[in-house]
Every structure is written in C-alpha cells, then in structure tokens.
C-alpha cells in the first residue's frame, strides 16, 4: 500500500480525478440546488433512474427556461473561474509525474515546491489551454473529414479515425505542457521550436505509445461501462447506486491514469529525442 502511495503516476491520477470531480460538482451545483427544490417531494424523482426520463427533462426545461438559462450562465462563469485554478494545480501534477526524486531540482510532493512550480508554469499552461480550443477544433474537423472517407468501409473505422485525430491533438498539447515544465519556458513559440527539433525523429514512437495506452484504457473503460450498464438495468436501490457511483469514478480514474501514463511516456520520448538531437549536433 505504501508502495502504491509512493507511485507518482497513481498519485497524479488520483489528483486529476479529484480535480475533475470538483469541476463537475462546482459547475452543476446551482442546478442541483434548483433540482432538489423541484423534485424532492415529486413523483417525478422516481423517473430519474436509470436515466432522467425525457418527459421530466422536458417539463423542467419547458417550464423553467429562464432558470435553466441562468444555470447555464452560472455554469459557464464557474467553469471560467475554475479552469485557471485547475490549470494551476495541473502544472504541479505534471511536474509530479515528470520529475524524478534524484533530479534534485524540485520535489512537488513538498507543498512549497508544489505551489512554486504551479505558479511558475501557470501562465504557460493557460496559454496551452486557450490554444487547445483551436487544436481540438482542427483535430475534430480533420477527424470528421477523414472519417467520412474511411467511414465507407466501416462505422468503427470512422470513429477510430476521429479518435486518433483527437488523440494526436491531445498529445500535441501534452508535449507543449511537458516542454513548459521541463524547460521552465512558458513561451509557446519556444515550445513549438523544441517540438519541431525533437518530435520528427520520435513520431512513430509517440504515435504507437499513445495509441497503445489509449487503446488499453479504452478497453478497461468499456469493461467498466458494461458493468455500469448492467447495474443501471436493475431497479433502483441505494446499494446499486453506490456501486454505480464507484464504477463511474473508476472509469474517470482509468482515463486519468491513462493520461498520466501518456504524460510520463511522452516526457521520456521527448527526453530521449532531445538526447538524440544533442548527440546529432555534437556529431555534426
């Protein structure tokens, strides 16, 4: 157990899961307060399991459109406020994954170092988050476009193509973040320059590694999802609800674990690529 708790990847995954849980709770909190006032004593609450019935959803939306609009706005405001805070913590979690104890530079396990690293890279991470919107939109566009071509052969192939493009976008953003952490330089331009220097020689390794981790994660998530579906197909009772919540959190944790493994892997590939690049320069 102590060994597990010392595993940085696992700790990082727990921290990511906690950050995402907090995000979900904060964004939805105003809606939940509203929902309880409406449903707490209504028979409509019996139609929330396994999923909220469309009739209940419709009655809420149709009869409270003003309130729903207000909750959407409040959700966006909470999201906008929360994301910089999440980014602040994410920088340190990246550091926790990347840095080895024997580096001697920083120990994110130490609260002071954790905060120092967070604040050092914060602006850089926010830049990546904003840039990420463009990256994901482009990845989605390319994925759907190429998916149309491959979709002629099979629907699964269409989905796989979209998935690979999104994964490529995610990998690019992770590499940018890793570069910020490892170099301490928050400039995106510098990040791109070092990516162009390192990544071309490691492209195949990056591709295979990220797809392998994602595929393994997807397989575990699917198994957990089948379990969740099985629970949801049963009648409501508190024990089943508890199991379904645990399964849901396990799914999120597996996704976060996959992300942490990818961060670690991408960092090692980059480091190796950098060594190769330096070696080539020295030879040249």
């Amino acid at each position: 157990m102590r060994k597990i708790l010392k595993n940085k990847i696992l700790i990082a995954s727990f921290l990511f899961t906690f950050l995402d849980l907090l995000q979900g709770f904060l964004v939805l909190a105003p809606f939940f307060i509203f929902l309880r006032t409406f449903l707490e004593k209504s028979g409509a609450a019996l139609k929330l399991w396994p999923f909220m019935s469309v009739d209940v959803l419709g009655d809420i939306v149709i009869n409270n459109s003003g309130a729903i609009g207000m909750f959407l706005i409040s959700a966006v405001v909470i999201y906008v406020v929360y994301i910089p805070l999440k980014t602040l913590a994410a920088g340190a979690i990246y550091g926790l994954i990347i840095f080895r104890n024997d580096d001697g530079r920083i120990s994110p396990a130490n609260a002071g170092d954790f905060l120092r690293l967070s604040t050092d890279v914060w602006i850089g991470f926010i830049k990546v988050a904003v840039f990420g919107v463009i990256v994901y939109l482009v990845a989605l566009f390319l994925g759907i476009s190429f998916g149309e071509i491959f979709g002629r052969f099979s629907k699964l192939l269409r989905l796989a193509v979209v998935f690979i493009f999104l994964l490529a976008g995610s990998t690019l953003l992770q590499i940018l973040r890793i570069n910020i952490i490892s170099s301490g330089d928050i400039s995106l331009r510098t990040g791109f320059k070092s990516i162009l220097r390192i990544v071309p020689g490691s492209l195949v390794r990056l591709l295979i590694g990220n797809i392998s981790v994602a595929a393994a994660g997807l397989a575990v998530v699917l198994i957990l999802f089948i379990g969740l579906k099985g629970i949801k197909n049963m009648d409501w009772n508190p024990a089943r609800v508890l199991v379904s919540i645990v399964l849901q959190q396990m799914i999120v944790f597996v996704v976060c674990l996959g992300q942490s493994i990818r961060i670690n892997f991408n960092y090692s590939v980059m480091k190796r690529g950098e060594d190769d690049a330096l070696g080539r320069a020295e030879l040249g």
């Binding site: 990511f16 899961t17 950050l19 995402d20 849980l21 995000q23 979900g24 709770f25 964004v27 939805l28 809606f31 939940f32 929902l35 309880r36 449903l39 707490e40 004593k41 209504s42 609450a45 019996l46 929330l48 399991w49 999923f51 909220m52 409501w236 508190p238 609800v241 379904s244 919540i245 849901q248 959190q249 799914i251 999120v252 996704v255 976060c256 992300q259």
Partner: peptide, 22 residues
Amino acid sequence: NWTGRIMAFEWDSIFIIELLAS
C-alpha cells in the same frame, strides 16, 4: 423526500462532466 434518488442523478450528471474534463 427522494433525496437518495436525486443524489444518484446528481452523481450521474457529475460523471458526464468529469469524464469530458478528464
């Protein structure tokens, strides 16, 4: 009070946001 049932729904909703965020 149907608090338990509503809480179950709330966790479902949080799960969707969590999954997207992760």
